[in-house]
């Protein structure tokens, strides 16, 4: 018989955390380079690239300054926030009911619906069939609905959520039904409170997608007052590429590599801030925590 002892546990923790430490280093070192690149002053960079370490007083925030002081930066950020919030809300509003309904294994027509959904997942019809629908049939040119609605439901997300709903023991739902609740109420009162980790996970996936989206805004939006942040950052970066045609006095305080890196770090920032908050729900083990057998 194999018995767990304190020594086993200690060795196990050493192994697991050692592994995590190695992974951490593999990830952190290149990331550190990205941060340093964004802070490297132009003259240092032009002399010999990004040094691995610089004292804080040697840092240059010129790249960030160029991004943040852009005249349309506040507007673009606001647009991005609107697109992300509305998009994620709409996505969850469509994904949760779909996943919940499909998690009922006895639902007549369930297999057919899953098959129909999977079918659309397999066949990527390309840009034009979707463009014709959104721009021509629906007339959503220059309308942020064109950014928010078409990608609202992701098949992977639906199926993952469905799997989680399936994992909720039938007895809990049954006991609620005994109390006279209908299936909507079961979803609202019993299932959703138990599913916070997966709601947050899928919500995060959707949010990240909307936050980073730059192609559909370029395609559908003409008015610059509607453009979100990724489009603006892209324009700033591309602008630096065409230096031979830029015949006026651009403030060249930052290298293109600094600009690229700071653009990435700026877009990352909100997600970095949100994630620890989401993590709180992850570590608590919300799901099934209160279930007594």
């Amino acid at each position: 018989m194999f018995r767990s002892t304190n020594r086993d546990e200690w060795g196990f923790q050493l192994f697991v955390n050692g592994l995590l430490l190695i992974v951490l280093l593999i990830i952190v070192i290149p990331l550190w380079r990205v941060i340093m690149t964004s802070l490297t002053p132009l003259d240092v960079y032009m002399r010999g690239g990004t040094p691995m370490f610089q004292w804080p007083w040697e840092w240059s925030f010129a790249a960030y300054e160029q991004m943040l002081t852009h005249p349309t930066f506040p507007r673009a950020t606001l647009n991005s926030v609107i697109i992300t919030l509305c998009g994620t809300a709409l996505s969850l509003f469509l994904t949760v009911p779909l996943a919940y309904a499909l998690s009922a294994r006895t639902l007549p027509g369930r297999r057919l619906i899953i098959a129909l959904i999977l079918f659309t997942f397999l066949f990527h019809v390309g840009l034009i069939p979707v463009y014709l629908l959104v721009a021509k049939t629906l007339g959503w040119t220059n309308n942020i609905l064109a950014i928010i609605v078409p990608p609202a439901v992701g098949v992977t997300n639906v199926l993952v959520m469905m799997r989680f709903f399936e994992g909720i023991p039938e007895e809990i739902k049954e006991s609620a039904r005994m109390d006279g609740a209908n299936d909507l109420q079961v979803l609202w009162r019993i299932v959703l409170p138990l599913s916070k980790p997966i709601l947050l996970t899928i919500g995060l996936f959707y949010a990240v997608h909307y936050w980073n989206e730059f192609f559909t805004p370029i395609l559908y939006l003409n008015d610059q007052n509607l453009q979100p942040l990724p489009v603006l950052l892209r324009n700033i970066l591309i602008g630096q590429n065409f230096s031979e045609y830029v015949d006026y006095d651009v403030s060249r305080a930052a290298s293109i590599e600094s600009l690229k890196s700071s653009a990435v770090l700026l877009t990352m920032l909100p997600m970095v801030l949100v994630y620890p908050w989401i993590q709180r729900y992850f570590t608590k083990g919300t799901l099934l925590g209160g279930v007594k057998e």
Partner: peptide, 27 residues
């Protein structure tokens, strides 16, 4: 017990949420 009323309130709430989303997002 007015479970029916509760149902309708819930549905109405969801419908409102959707309307709000669309309204807030329509430029």
């Amino acid at each position: 017990m007015s479970t029916k009323t509760t149902r309708f309130v819930k549905i109405a709430l969801i419908a409102c949420a959707l309307t709000l989303i669309i309204a807030a997002c329509a430029p």
